[in-house]
């Protein structure tokens, strides 16, 4: 039996191996994904992002319970940063979700962002396909909301939940700067704290300045306390409501097409790049080029244009 067969049958070990394969970008990755692709397209992908300590993992634990009550199989991909210095990572998001560890309908996988080309997005996109093909109805991707990653993850998801908490300061600045435009639902966690009412008012205000369209209406704001299990029903209703609306307006399809477009473009670029690097051994030439520039023997654009002409000629010859 092939790895792809094992994944399609939902075997835990096969899924685990398959994800490691894409994560390490090992030989066999492309064949695996191509074999699984016909079985994908059924899972709904949710993104969950927010600043450190916002309570994302605690909230996920509650959401998993709700998914299971609704009879859905759910997979979580929890992405945490790797240390840029050592390459190591401490992946602790599971800690708050271990109550689901023995549930055969829940699969949790931690991923370190590592440093690889194309970022974490490529590996995560393939991991989503693996869970989709393995029959998980929901795939939830959890990331730390600190910049570029939120955007990359948003582009993987059908719907993005942005988790905010009172007392973190610069959130409202970020909101105004537009980074947080990616949220489809704003979740204010720790509603058990007094300051949460003020945060809500601020978020409402910022959202009132947005330009809603029929496809993307003003996002709902939901107050929850993950710790005390309050407001979770409202959140579940909001998710269902948004998903239904996005399905009706064609927004989900639009996002999936965009996602494919981006994936294709990225793959295309990286393959073309690899091909050129291999063919003309750019690394080997680079030292020489740098020398010519630093000694002012040549100017940068003249050099690069001449090299490009040469690269194309080299490629034509082969």
């Amino acid at each position: 039996m092939t790895l792809a067969d094992g994944v399609r049958q939902g075997q835990q070990r096969a899924i685990a191996r398959a994800i490691s394969l894409v994560e390490n970008d090992l030989p066999g990755r492309e064949e695996l994904i191509d074999r699984l692709y016909p079985s994908t397209g059924k899972a709904v992908v949710l993104g969950l992002t927010g600043p450190p300590g916002a309570g994302k993992s605690t909230l996920l634990d509650r959401l998993l319970s709700e998914e299971r009550k609704a009879g859905r199989k759910a997979a979580v991909i929890a992405v945490d940063p790797s240390s840029p210095f050592t390459g190591g990572a401490l992946l602790g998001d599971r800690l708050r979700m271990q109550s689901h560890a023995l549930d055969p309908g829940v699969y949790i996988r931690s991923m370190a962002s590592r440093g690889h080309l194309g970022g974490i997005a490529g590996a995560t996109a393939d991991a989503v396909k693996i869970f989709d093909a393995a029959g998980y109805d929901r795939v939830i991707v959890e990331t730390l909301g600190v910049g570029q990653t939120e955007i990359e993850i948003a582009q993987l998801s059908d719907l993005v939940l942005l988790v905010l908490v009172p007392g973190l300061g610069d959130e409202i600045q970020a909101l105004k700067a537009g980074i947080m435009e990616i949220g489809d639902i704003y979740v204010i966690n720790k509603s058990d704290k007094d300051e949460s009412a003020r945060l809500r008012a601020e978020v409402d205000y910022v959202l009132s300045l947005a330009n809603p369209t029929p496809e993307r209406p003003v996002p709902p704001v939901v107050m929850v306390s993950a710790l005390f299990d309050r407001g979770i029903d409202d959140l579940i209703d909001s998710i269902a409501g948004r998903l239904q609306r996005y399905a009706e307006t064609g927004e989900i399809d639009r996002r999936r097409r965009l996602r494919l477009r981006r994936e294709l473009r990225q793959q295309l670029q990286s393959k073309i790049n690899d091909h050129i690097e291999r063919k003309v051994e750019i690394d080997r030439q680079m030292d020489q080029w740098v020398e010519r520039l630093i000694s002012h023997q040549e100017t940068p654009y003249a050099l690069i244009n001449r090299q490009i002409e040469w690269i194309f000629k080299e490629m034509d010859r082969s």
Partner: peptide
């Protein structure tokens, strides 16, 4: 982690079954 490994940590009071299932899922 500081030595460069990817470390998954799951907290206290884990049963052998849940440890093993976690080990399998996390490969």
């Amino acid at each position: 982690k500081d030595a460069g490994y990817e470390v998954i940590y799951t907290g206290i009071r884990q049963s052998p079954e849940s440890i093993v299932r976690t080990a399998l899922q996390e490969d």
